[in-house]
Design a protein around this nucleic acid. Sequence first.
DNA 1: GTCCGCATGTAAGTAGTTACATGATTCA
DNA 2: TGAATCATGTAACTACTTACATGCGGAC
Lengths: 183, 183
Amino acid sequence: MDIKTTCLGVLAKRSATGYEIRKAFEEGPFSHFAEGGFGSIYPALNKLDADGLVTCERAEQDRRPDKKIYHITERGRRALTEALEEKVPGEDKYKSDLLFLLFFAEDLTPDHISIVIDSRIAWYEAKIAQIQEREKPAQPDGADLVGEFGIAVYRSALEFLVSHRQAFIDLAAADQPAATAAE
Amino acid sequence: MDIKTTCLGVLAKRSATGYEIRKAFEEGPFSHFAEGGFGSIYPALNKLDADGLVTCERAEQDRRPDKKIYHITERGRRALTEALEEKVPGEDKYKSDLLFLLFFAEDLTPDHISIVIDSRIAWYEAKIAQIQEREKPAQPDGADLVGEFGIAVYRSALEFLVSHRQAFIDLAAADQPAATAAE
DNA sequence: GTCCGCATGTAAGTAGTTACATGATTCA
DNA sequence: TGAATCATGTAACTACTTACATGCGGAC
């Protein structure tokens, strides 16, 4: 999804400033599939405004620069559903730097492999905890179900890493006899 | 990973032409985390050649245009390991269009949701089957372990979709009483 | 006789990242 | 006094995608 659509997605849930949209990309439930810095968010909001998909409300603040609170319009909502319905997302490339790296485990040092795997394990644990923090309502909505999806996938990745950690390290150790002997 | 590094990754496993690299991105074990069309592969190979990270062997062919078979050099191998060791991949954004779409299940039609979920289920099944086709050696290498990782993750995503398919469809149906009534 | 696979490339365009620029407030 | 948070933006750059250009061979 492009940055305009993801901004529209955040605004469909609640009105927000560019700054808040960025926080949503970093922390909230959007952090699992959206990203983007100020350099892409602000131009995107300006374009959405020009296209009439959002409106901009200027809010003066005490001893702070003005906020620009963006609200989604009816046309914006329609544009979002159209963007979502227009294509069936056929696949998700992992495009995972971790898998790419582990693919070449034989060519790396055991040290580096263990650092990488351990930090990823910690990251998965933190992510799962973060999603679980939000209490589940009796009647879950799309966001809740997507959160459960995330937990299921993160958990299986986490378990795999925990159980295969040593195997990857052994691979790295086995293929570097020269380096090990030299030191 | 950028296109130059992924090309280098393919060439680290075996020498190949630009055309074959693209096939590797589409079919082989690289298809899980690498992608790129001719428009990015050929310029990347030229740059790698200019930088001395690969060499280019011209192979004449019977009644066909010349092939350019690229081989990785020692410097290329070093550049690859350096690229892999230089940063610890801290996270993997799903950047998943599917999750983004399901997040807004309430705003979509039950029909669209079911099409999307069913096609994704079929895709996961095909992917898992494709990875399992390669027979496992007694002594698995990085590529084999990464394949198992992929299967574990795909399988948990698949199971989640199968078991929550109806819940997503119900969400879409529940929030569109006006549309349903109007028709 | 038309489409698919093999084979390589360029040019124009899109999208997004990174770095820069500004400035007040609050907390340690 | 220095860093972090709030707050918005621009300019330059990087990287990749899409469309175009060319052409033979083989299968249906």
